[in-house]
């Protein structure tokens, strides 16, 4: 029992919570960036600009089908060889954003496609331009369909920040390892703390999302 109290001393907890802050910081920035970039890419892919959309689509497919861990390694260890250099925080944000944008682009594309084509025809027949129809009629409906997959993507993103421990980003998992590395009796308490902290953040997000969904319906 005493070792449990020691493991959860304020000193250790504070150290972990600072890590949780880094985790949240990386997550929030990556979510915002990848939502913007992913939406743009998804729309480009849906609209089928000649040539551009095909290339964008292929790049998205390549990135989507690679492990995030590989992209993270590549960004941090590989790119410096061709002159692109980043610190761990920037590298983590960059790799997560590239990966998640590709995932989100796919969600956005299929979300738009799921909206009935008739809707666009209807919009055109009442005199709207293609862009007006897309913006006023199609996108808002697609948005509703996209919320659940987007939220689970964001939850994945939060969990995936733990991979950045490998490039020595001092986030939650890295700090837990530092603590139990110094005193292996803290191993179990640290794993419990990790599970609880990640769970609370991710589950809270999914609760907020389902609340949001109910309100929009």
């Amino acid at each position: 029992m005493s070792s449990l109290a020691e493991a959860y001393s304020w000193i250790n907890l504070r150290y972990l919570l600072q890590g949780l802050l880094v985790t949240i910081e990386v997550s929030v920035i990556s979510i915002i960036l990848s939502f913007i970039l992913g939406s743009i890419l998804g729309i480009i892919r849906y609209i089928r600009f000649p040539f551009v959309s095909a290339i964008v689509g292929f790049i998205i497919d390549l990135i989507r089908n690679l492990p995030l861990l590989l992209l993270l390694f590549f960004t941090y260890f590989g790119l410096p060889q061709v002159g692109i250099k980043m610190d761990p925080l920037t590298a983590a944000i960059a790799a997560m954003t590239v990966f998640e944008s590709a995932m989100i682009a796919e969600i956005v594309r299929s979300g738009i496609q799921a909206v009935d084509l008739g809707q666009m025809e209807g919009a055109r027949s009442v005199g709207m331009t293609y862009w007006q129809g897309l913006r006023v009629i199609v996108l808002p409906q697609a948005m509703k369909k996209m919320i659940p997959p987007l939220v689970s993507q964001f939850i994945s993103l939060i969990k995936d920040t733990s991979l950045a421990t490998i490039i020595v980003l001092p986030e939650l998992l890295y700090r837990a390892q530092i603590i139990y590395g110094q005193n292996t009796r803290y191993m179990v308490p640290m794993f419990i703390a990790l599970a609880v902290m990640y769970f609370v953040v991710c589950y809270a997000l999914s609760l907020v999302a389902s609340g949001l969904e109910r309100r929009t319906n």
Partner: peptide
């Protein structure tokens, strides 16, 4: 479902490897 969906895979894997 909620437990395993909301904890990073890396944490789960390491749990089985070292704990």
């Amino acid at each position: 479902i909620e437990v395993f969906r909301n904890i990073p895979l890396l944490v789960i894997g390491m749990f089985f490897y070292i704990v």
